[in-house]
């Protein structure tokens, strides 16, 4: 690796580090705003996902990774979602107060 690419790479990592630290400040600041629950959760998770994406794309070099790695990660992500959705969905009425649990039943409940 030439010196120039090494310098460029190092700079890219340091820039990413700066962005990650800035986002950390944002997360903490958001939590002091005392917003209602739903936007707090959504914002906190959005910022966390953004940070995770930065780490994955730049530090873990997922940007420009090979198809096999993508395939494995996509499969894993889908399965995590399946687990979350069905696990919480099975108890949706109690957890979210929906009438979803017996949506298919007819007649009076």
């Amino acid at each position: 690796m030439s010196d120039a690419t090494y310098q460029a790479e190092t700079r890219a990592y340091l820039t990413t580090l700066g962005a990650l630290l800035a986002l950390t400040v944002v997360t903490v600041a958001l939590s002091y705003l005392d917003l209602p629950t739903a936007p707090t959760v959504a914002l906190a998770l959005a910022v966390a996902s953004l940070k995770a994406a930065l780490v994955a794309a730049v530090f873990m070099h997922l940007k420009g990774e090979h198809a096999l790695v993508y395939g494995t990660l996509v499969l894993t992500a889908v399965l995590v979602v399946v687990l979350f959705v069905l696990l919480l969905g099975a108890d949706a009425d109690r957890l979210f107060g929906t009438g979803f649990g017996d949506a298919f039943s007819e007649g009076p409940r």
Binding site: L75, V82, L86, A90, D102
Partner: peptide, 25 residues
Amino acid sequence: GFLSFTVWAHHMYLTGMGTTISAIF
């Protein structure tokens, strides 16, 4: 292989899950 991750709650019909989730499984 893929579908085997989406059927697990058919072991749990007796746990009182609603008909919707039951129908999915």
